[in-house]
Amino acid sequence: MPDGAVPVLEVKDLKTVFRVRGGEIHAVNSVSFDLRAGELLGVVGESGSGKSVTMMSLLDLLPSPPAEVRNGTVMLGDRDLLKVDAETMRSIRGGEVGFIFQDPMTSLNPVFTVGFQIMEPLRSHMGLSKAKARDRAVELLELVGIPDARSRLKDYPHQFSGGMRQRVMIAIALACDPKVLIADEPTTALDVTIQAQILELIKDLRQKLGMAIIWITHDLGVIAGIADRVMVMYGGQVVEQGPVREVFANPAHPYTRALLQTMPKLHGARETKLRVIEGQPPMLGRHPESCPFRDRCGHAFDRCAAENPARRQLGENHDVACHWDHREGKP
């Protein structure tokens, strides 16, 4: 895809901590990445690895306290999102940057109708009249495959199925033609046919609007199908990053390799038991001084405990944070 294109979003050294009773949770540790115009960056990683917290930190969406963004810069064009005032942030959110939350039930307000919640940003960000906003809302709901859209505008979120609520979230995020779309598990509640339809829609919008997209998902099939690049997170860090074909063909980090092996298959013999990555996720109680994956890693050696590996370049655009040299098969 657009190689060498200018980054629309550049994140450097982001660090987010939660203060909780009895200590701190270091959820995001020195995360850096960029997103180029028109590109789709897939983000995968263990549950609890900091994917959502990273993205929510960018848009000041975390409750503070307990959350505290301790370090980093987030450049959207020439503005640092960590420094803009609340007013500017509000106009960026839902305007230039669309956001789809992981949990559709909590991000839709149960006391307002679905129609109101889609029309609201259209009226406040785009200044549409009520009638225009309603027409656009219907159009958006049809785009994400909600049948009988006009008559469902007056329904409340609980009257929608899980997947329909998720599609409402997608419609809201797309309402104002964002430049950047951050989608956190946007299709987990969708069946494959609707998911395919949404993915086609997203591809289409990318082409038409040049929208750049961050897509968080557990579904490696989806990543394989639509992402240009993939970023793998573990224990609050980026452990590998590269073009999607390259990472799937030559995964460099032991966690990435384990992840690719745990997928159940649609074809071939049924596995009697699914493969899992043994062991527990890291506790995140302190800033990590050693490799967060070492307790579960088959290759760990003394250096992994002594020093948290920095990201090193493997090839063009492909990097990994691991002391083990997977190509040489030695430390």
């Binding site: 992981q102 598990e185 987990t188 557990h218 992840l259 899992v276």
Partner: peptide
């Protein structure tokens, strides 16, 4: 949809557990 929100390794853990 007990596993929709889980990463693949934990999906596998939960499914193995259910089994």
């Amino acid at each position: 949809e007990p596993i929709a929100a889980l990463d693949v390794s934990i999906q596998a853990q939960v499914v193995n557990l259910l089994e």
